[in-house]
Design a protein around this nucleic acid. Sequence first.
DNA 1: CGCCTAATAGGCAGCGCTGTCGATTAGTGG
DNA 2: CCACTAATCGACAGCGCTGCCTATTAGGCG
Lengths: 218, 218
Amino acid sequence: MPRTGSRRPRDPEATREIILEAARTILAKDGPEGLSLSEVAHLAGVNRGTAYQHFETREKLVQATAEWVSDKLFRAAFGDPETIGERRLDEFDIAEMTDCLAQFAMDNHELCRIWFLQLLSSPDPTTDMFWREYSGSLQRFAESDLAAPGIDAEVLSVMNLAGVFLWPIWAQAHAEDGAGRAQLARRFADECLRLALYGSMRAEAYPGIARRLRKEQR
Amino acid sequence: MPRTGSRRPRDPEATREIILEAARTILAKDGPEGLSLSEVAHLAGVNRGTAYQHFETREKLVQATAEWVSDKLFRAAFGDPETIGERRLDEFDIAEMTDCLAQFAMDNHELCRIWFLQLLSSPDPTTDMFWREYSGSLQRFAESDLAAPGIDAEVLSVMNLAGVFLWPIWAQAHAEDGAGRAQLARRFADECLRLALYGSMRAEAYPGIARRLRKEQR
DNA sequence: CGCCTAATAGGCAGCGCTGTCGATTAGTGG
DNA sequence: CCACTAATCGACAGCGCTGCCTATTAGGCG
């Protein structure tokens, strides 16, 4: 018997977007397990039944949010997915791309963390556009003569992304203001580059490990 | 009016341990947000009221579990905390320690992930014994002549641990059996060592980045 | 042996979330 | 202009969890 009050004008697309936006807020606040359709609907200013019509279950809603994150990550790192084919040929700047990625991760650390953990436990990560492009790029880089020899691109992809997406959590907890966060972001970027160029252990001081690696690669 | 049934013999220590063990199981299954005192108590075979007496709130229980993980990590990496002072003098094997750590992380990946994420967002990580010892060791290593110059030990600690604790999630999702997991663990260890020794980008191919790093360090 | 603390157990009220209804009504197409 | 689809809304029952309460009783101590 709903006779009272004004009703949202019919616009499924917009309603879906409002719900998704609310879901992002709640997700960032409480994590995927803490998200309830009830709370999302309330924050979105939408009836619970309406939310249920758009996303049958909580899991679907989380999934849709993860896809949104993946899309944003892709755009931050590689630009418009439509034109990616044309630009793939010329080498692009890895340091620059990592910077953009790290920046997006700093601005959306909770959502990025959630997305990344989902990716890691996904049985088939290649369904994720961003992961496909990122690990593919790293693979191509590893095969180029700009790279150090013997890279395991898959492992290195995971390690790199783990740093990129988890460091912002630390930064968020330890910086008192925007300037502090920016400085921590800078330190992270520098250390990434330093590690990429020089490693952390002086190779000549560890002949045993060097031998093990050579043997490992057969 | 509890007159029926047998009652658990009084043993607060053991009861607490049983509850903690159940909590670890639930945590590993559902994550910190999915844990409820109700479910823990049921799994532990303990009355809910009893569980409440030992851990006033859910958060306390999660906290206690995190401390358990930290302690186990410490022992896996550094041995008995009681005797740590004696052994600190001689240099210990970083590769070996990382191997032990990675092994423990592979065997307890959900709990390790939870502990690590808590550590990252903790305002004062130095209250955690394992973190204190780990980052301290890395700091001392960075200052030794075995290390590459210019290491930011704090950032590198976070990056290393991020890899160590998140890779097992990937491994768990992608290995069909124990042998597969062991092989993935091996690949991870090798890539860690390779990266530590040689980095990922041929430094001579990136003079611009090398310049930026030199300038950054003033 | 009896007392007494506190460890264990069970119950009650309240709350939020989930599924799932049916009722309403805004657009859309004929 | 009317019919109809489906988007939106409100309500109900069921369930699990939380906080808190009291009842019981095991085990320690004088």
